[in-house]
């Protein structure tokens, strides 16, 4: 009944997009950027932290609890508190990047530590027995074997980042979430669906694309797994 409404017809969706395409594309671009950069930063930070938690057993419990604690802070709260911590302006996209990087680290530290720990003990011992140094073992044995676990963590981080970036639009950061806030403001006199639906569709597409990119990356980094799967 509601979706049959004139304002929600697919034609309206397309005309809304063609009328605003430069604006929408720039939001899409910054949305993608705001989603991806924290994943990359988060990964770079979590790798050494996760390794530390693995290497020194006593580091693991406090590290995992602390990062778990960070994860309980709602994203909107983190976006809003960031300016006080960083000295940035309220609407600075840096706030979003840093906040989401914090989340990604919170998620990935444990994943990296557990992933490095998923290497069977006999494999590690064989590597040591063959004369690999601790660093070589990390690079050539532990990290490759941990890739699928880390990739699974990255997929979760990327998909949830797309959703969390949209939240920042409610405090005025320009990205795809603006389609929701615009739709909300345009619906004051009566429902106006095109921007809201367009935003949902673009967000889902962006999440799927990022997810798929990580799957591809994981596959290209772990060729041996395909051999096993093909058997």
């Amino acid at each position: 009944m509601i979706l049959a409404d004139d304002n929600s017809s697919p034609l309206k969706l397309f005309s809304y997009f063609s009328n605003n395409h430069s604006q929408v594309l720039s939001w899409l671009w910054s949305h993608a950027w705001l989603s991806v950069v924290p994943v990359v930063i988060g990964l770079i930070v979590s790798l050494p932290l996760g390794w530390l938690a693995r290497r020194y057993r006593w580091v693991y419990p406090p590290m995992v609890s602390l990062t778990g604690l960070l994860y309980t802070i709602p994203s909107i709260a983190l976006f809003v508190v960031m300016p006080s911590l960083l000295g940035t302006r309220i609407l600075d996209p840096i706030n979003v990047v840093v906040a989401l990087s914090v989340y990604t680290v919170a998620l990935l530290v444990r994943v990296v530590a557990d992933g490095l720990g998923s290497v069977p003990e006999e494999v590690n011992q064989a590597a040591t027995a063959m004369g690999l140094t601790r660093f070589q073992r990390l690079l050539k044995v532990e990290l490759p074997i941990a890739v699928p676990v880390i990739a699974a963590g990255l997929r979760v981080a990327a998909v949830s980042n797309v959703s969390m970036v949209a939240v920042a639009a409610t405090i005025g950061v320009p990205e795809l979430g603006q389609l929701f806030t615009n739709g909300f403001q345009l619906s004051v006199s009566g429902p106006y669906y095109p921007p809201i639906l367009l935003g949902l569709i673009l967000c889902v597409i962006l999440a799927l694309v990022l997810d798929f990119a990580i799957v591809l990356l994981n596959r290209s980094l772990t060729p041996w797994r395909r051999v096993v799967a093909a058997r």
């Binding site: 998909v159 959703s163 949209a166 939240v167 809201i196 949902l200 889902v204």
Partner: peptide, 19 residues
């Protein structure tokens, strides 16, 4: 369902149901 952005859902449902 988890891939859907919650802000978008919130506003969509508000616009649909609110009136």
């Amino acid at each position: 369902l988890r891939a859907l952005p919650t802000v978008g859902l919130l506003i969509l449902f508000y616009v649909i149901i609110g009136p």
